[in-house]
Simulated assay, not measured.
Amino acid sequence: MSESNMRPDKERCEAYRQFERIHAAFRAGDIDALRAAVDDPACIPNGPMPPGIGACLEYAIYHSALPFVRTLLDAGADPRPADHAGFPPLLAALSCTLAPPGGSARADVVELLRLLLDFGADPAQRGINDYTALHMAVSVRNLPAVALLLAAGADAACRTRIDDCETPREMAEAMGLSDIARLLAAHGGQRQDTK
């Protein structure tokens, strides 16, 4: 096999080794190791990460302990990114309520939400399915998260602008989540008018 035919395999192997170093740094909560593992240390915490990583803060939400998420926020990570591939930080955190296949759920989702809110995350920022954080909290059946978001000023009457155009309360009622629906109703959550 010629040298030119082997180059793509070498490049893939090096990219995989770099990914492993980056992932290990996120898991260890080591910002210096993370900066050393990327091609441009200045990309931490808001610049473009290597393919497969996504946004630095989002990756930390999925793979790092709470103190490292705080480290990135202290370093200037944007809790309200315009480019978020459907999962702005609050939605990413809420998605960790449920265990991914072969993984485990985060036990500290409410603390993570509180941290993100303290650093200015926007509960009205929309993501996948045009969900706000409150819609996402209902979809993952997280009552404490719903309460926290309402206390932070989330709009209980906000509707999605696609699909069923539901409010969080309507979602909760459709899912049979009476405790969440009552809490949302107490905060002005509306139902669709039926004819």
Rank of each mutant, 00 (worst) to 15 (best):
S4P: 02
N5R: 13
K10A: 15
C13A: 13
A15Y: 10
R21M: 06
I22W: 01
R27P: 04
D30C: 05
A33W: 12
V38Y: 06
D39L: 03
D39P: 00
D40Y: 11
P41L: 11
P41M: 10
P41Q: 09
P45F: 04
P48Q: 15
P48K: 14
G52E: 14
A55V: 10
L57P: 00
Y59C: 09
A60I: 07
A60S: 05
I61W: 03
Y62W: 06
V69R: 07
R70C: 10
R70E: 15
P79C: 06
R80A: 14
H84Q: 10
F87H: 06
P89D: 06
A92H: 02
A93D: 07
L94G: 00
S104M: 12
A105V: 02
R106T: 07
D108T: 01
D108P: 00
V110A: 04
R114N: 09
L115G: 08
G127A: 07
G127D: 07
A133R: 09
A133N: 07
H135L: 07
H135T: 03
L143E: 14
P144R: 03
A145E: 04
L149D: 07
L149S: 05
L149E: 04
A157W: 03
T160R: 08
R161V: 01
D163Q: 11
D164S: 10
C165A: 08
T167D: 03
T167W: 04
P168K: 04
R169V: 05
A172R: 10
A172V: 10
S178H: 13
I180H: 05
A185L: 15
G188A: 15
D193M: 04
T194W: 03
